[in-house]
Design a protein around this nucleic acid. Sequence first.
DNA 1: GCTTAGGTTTTG
Length: 761
Amino acid sequence: MPVHMLSEGGGRAEAQIPNHLQRIEIKKLTLDSECEDKYVKGHVVLKYPLNVLPNGRQMLKAVIQEHVTQQSSSGIMSINVYFFGMLAKDFSDAVKQGGIVMVTGFSLIRSPTANKDKRHPCQLELFEEKKATVYVQNPKYIYVPLNELKPGVVVNVYGVVTYYKPPFPTKGTDYCSAVTIMDQSGRKLSCTLFSDKLEALPQIYKVGDIVRFHRIKTERFQGELKGVTSAGFSALTFDGRVGGPVIPRTGSKSYHFVEEDQRMLEMLRQWAASRCSPSEQNLSTVQPKQFFDLTCQLVAKAELVKSVLLKVWDGTKCSHPVWKVLEEEDILEGSAVLMYELQNLTVDVQVYDNHIEVAKSLKPGAYLRINNLHAKLHASTAKKQISNENHLQFHLHGGTIYGRGIQVLSADSYDVQELKKKLESAEVRVHPNVSDSVLLDFSINEGTLHAQLERCQQQSVTVLTAHQHMKITSLSNVKNCKPPQKFRIRAKLKSYEPKSLYQSVKRCCPKCRILQEIPDDESLAHLFQDASTRPLNLNLHNDFWYKTAVGCTKNKQQIAFHFLVEDDWEKDAEKTSVMVERASLNEIFQLSRRFGNIIPVTSSEEQLTLLDLSAPFLIQGKSCYYGCKNCSNVTGVRPLRQFVQQESWEATTIAQSLGIQLLHHVFLVKLELDDGTACLDAILWHEADKFFRSLPSEAEVNVALQEELERTMKTLCPPGKGFDELPWLDCCIMTYSTEDGVFNQIFDTVVAEETDILFNC
DNA sequence: GCTTAGGTTTTG
């Protein structure tokens, strides 16, 4: 068989041919070339119909093209090939245009048409009887040139994007995106693409990108051929520039990309580069009245009456004087420092109508492409304008024609990489004066300007209440510094303990600063159980300041209630204070629903006394108050009248009267922080109320607040996220040593509210 | 499997 079929698709063609054969490049072929055991490899770019010569012999002409993957057009060389006899018939039947062929046993003769067709000066001739052989690898996918499309077929195509409208939700179930492409044939195809999955639509960044569509269906609409998605549609998108990355953007999990694709891509790139002037401009190259595409970084923004103002830079200086929209820059959202430093490089872009919403959602630091931006001459209507020079102003008008709109570019995209190089080499000329030295100092500490801006985007979910100008220290440095010291850090919260914040509510003595364990419900029940077995002392019933009533439970347990005399407990139970003797924990809680203040007591020989300080000395509703075992000095229960008169049933005053040092509620949360340089455990303790903007005493008893705190923690440390996806936390921490070791404690830091996030730049 | 949308420069 003179025509050998090689397996389709991905496998390398060379691996499937006899290995004594050696390749000879088309461009190296001459009439003198020694061609035995040599093969020529190329793509079939043209295949003519089978022809019969006057002598009755069959003949077929094809053009094969060698593609050398270098970046110059001289890397492409094509040659005419003639097949004779059965070889012609077999070739005609077996080979598809676009397939890869490797031919051996050919003869080389001068090409009579070289001058006309600009192909190789030689041509190849293959005769079966001279042992010519053709190895064929047909492409898995055939890409149809746009000028060969017919209506009503499902095809695969390549093309350069000449127009696109980013995906938008339709009135139906899908997203829709419109893309018009063009190929070397000069023909355009407008495609309407639908998908219920956003990522399945082509991720086009700009006009000039190159797309590959699989399974697009052609149909006639208003007299023109259009493309629409058909079942199994998939798209790859590439940067359209010669030398750009050959990395497809796609939502497909698996896609077929072979030599042939690379060839198609590079051919289109070459062609596109030779064609039209790009719509992309720098601020330095843009001319008045132009509509252009701008790749830039957002420095600041402000919402105006009928538009949104975006202050952007692209690292180049506009060659025309630019119109500043605002004289006062106070209303701009963004870092004043960076605005100041970049004042000579930024331009004001005014965004109107349908683009306002997108503009509002942008964060300073974002990398943007603004498509079809209008560089207008400012109408110098204002009489006060002294300068004769015409200022340029930049407007993004309403509508989406010509792909008009704003796109946020991902920080790792090719365009942003290129932009960053420009931003880094930009000449930022500022004239520091004395009063600005602090600000400049700040910026020098923080790396390049665009990186500083970028960080604005990665907003912190916490906000500092002071020390904003302190330099950020890495956690590895914090660990290496000798305590005590204070730092500003920026890290991510990898985990925290305890998982439920109400479990983090502890008691701490404000006097001796010692954290004291609170018994759990079971231990408490035991405490009250023990106390309930002690006998009642009838001598202690009724005194000048309380009246005693004895009740009996279902279990025939006697409970004594000592009511303060001034209280009218039948009328005003909620304000009533009662000392309760011999009640179980359950009974105490039941009573606390009825009476405002419960003070558990027990009888000694001479007086009523409090229980052990392990038990709460006061129960108000669901709240239990405890005393410090170190700092309290409890004797008997003294007359509590004065507090009733003052109607001051604050736990603190009751505690005072009983000789108790009240324990305060505190949050104690352990945070595992990581900033990529090191991991560090820090605690939230003395300033935790400030941090959460909540009271721990409330958190202990208020379910709604517990839920809110849980939500807060999920914002700081979203479950199931990888390190990269975690938000940053700006924190102040202090390090200190105790007998138990070195601790790191958070201070002057609060959880950001939405408005903080907006302005925390 | 059906539907969806189907752009051609503001005038600030």
